[in-house]
């Protein structure tokens, strides 16, 4: 992590961010994986995951994230998420119908249950999390390009 006092916000914000950002990311992952049992799911979890990165960028300056994840990589991952969701939906064709849940449903209220729904949640969280991050990156890069001119 870049610990440069020139970029980003004050020391207090940076310290608090360092303490909380991991928890936010973990909470997002929990929401995604537990989405078929409790409120939440792919979309809400994906937004929380994306917000943890946005939080980092706000506190430490945009280079923290842009040096790790370029915009191209983000949009590639986003396409992969969309293709994954579409292919999970298309798996249903083997059972006879589009979007059919053909995997084993398992016991209710167990972590490994509900067939394709957890898989769809994963795909959606990839799509939404990276997609939101890509939107934010695009706006930040657009803003940066304007200042340089």
């Amino acid at each position: 992590m870049i610990d440069n006092s020139k970029t980003g916000m004050s020391l207090i914000v940076k310290t608090i961010t360092r303490l909380t950002v991991g928890l936010i990311l973990l909470f997002g992952i929990y929401i995604v994986l537990h989405g078929h049992l409790s409120p939440g799911g792919g979309f809400a979890g994906g937004v929380i995951i994306a917000l943890s990165f946005v939080h980092l960028m706000l506190a430490f300056g945009k280079e923290v994230v842009t040096s790790k994840i370029s915009k191209n990589l983000a949009s590639n991952l986003e396409s992969i998420g969309a293709l994954m969701f579409l292919s999970i939906a298309a798996i249903g064709f083997f059972g006879g119908s589009f979007f059919l849940n053909i995997l084993k449903k398992g016991e209710p209220f167990e972590l490994f249950s509900a067939g394709t729904i957890p898989l769809s949640n994963l795909a959606i969280s990839l799509k939404v999390g990276i997609g939101l991050l890509a939107i934010f990156l695009a706006l930040v890069i657009l803003e940066g390009a304007k200042k340089e001119r």
Partner: peptide, 24 residues
């Protein structure tokens, strides 16, 4: 409404990027 919020997010992001370009 969750779906509608997602759509609203897309439209708002598009509008903001258009607004930034218009300002340029």
């Amino acid at each position: 409404v969750l779906t509608s919020i997602v759509i609203g997010l897309g439209v708002t992001a598009l509008l903001i990027s258009i607004a930034i370009r218009l300002y340029e």
